[in-house]
Amino acid sequence: MNKLSTRQTILIYLALGVVLIVFLMPIYLIASSSLKPSPIMFQKPPAFLFAPTFEHYQDLFAMRPFGKFILNSLIVALGSTAFSLTIGSLAAYAISRIRHKRMNDVAFWILSMRMFPPIAVVVPYYIIFKTAGLLDTPLALIIVYSTANIPLTVWLMKGFFDEVPIALEEAAAVDGYGLLETFLRVTLPLAAPGLAVSAVFCFIFSWNEFLFALMLTGSEAQTATVAVMSFWSSDAVQWGRIMAGSFIILIPGVIFVLTCQRWLVRGLTMGSVK
């Protein structure tokens, strides 16, 4: 491509500046509002410099057991991640190594399982879990989130296993390793970055999820996303607490983007971009 002129460069940076302000402003609003004293929450023009207060964070943990809800979110997210990684990476390894023309169909079938509308299965889940006595338990959410996390893990890990040289596995077989041993000692360590990326994707998805958490939990197993919504009621909206809770909930996702953005393309575009 030909060189950009100075004028073009300036225009590009100006446009980019507007784009960045628009897309980052809501995040700045959450962070700043969570630290603003309530009287100036909606002050116009917005106060950029103000004495920050931690009262909303203190209220959040004092007025309601928000700590417990965060712990619930963590239990559910870590549980579903561990379960999905175990089952998903085994399946991904099989799909990556079996040479059969139907294997592609199996991979697509598994992937399609995460694309179904959650609302369409929420009624059956509700009835099934109610019958099984699992309503309002972390286990119910761990099971439900795995339906999205296993397909994602299979999809991501298959890509990583495809890149592990078969020669290394053959050498291990010559050394007398069985298949499971080869997988655990040779292949999986080489695909460790994939495991890390899959783990983070599973964690963030479960941490952020709202619909199932709302429908399938009550006061016991409630997660942070549902709890933060409960500060919203038609007569009094506790914006300070909503913003403080929102800020806590968005931290893992932001850290993920800042540290592993190059994997986002692979994890989100499902093979649209090679």
């Binding site: 909503i242 909930i249 996702g253 983007v257």
Partner: peptide, 18 residues
Amino acid sequence: RTLLMIPMMISPVIVGLV
């Protein structure tokens, strides 16, 4: 590019609330 990817990883409830 990296900064612009942040919205995607935010919980849709939080997006709704903000």
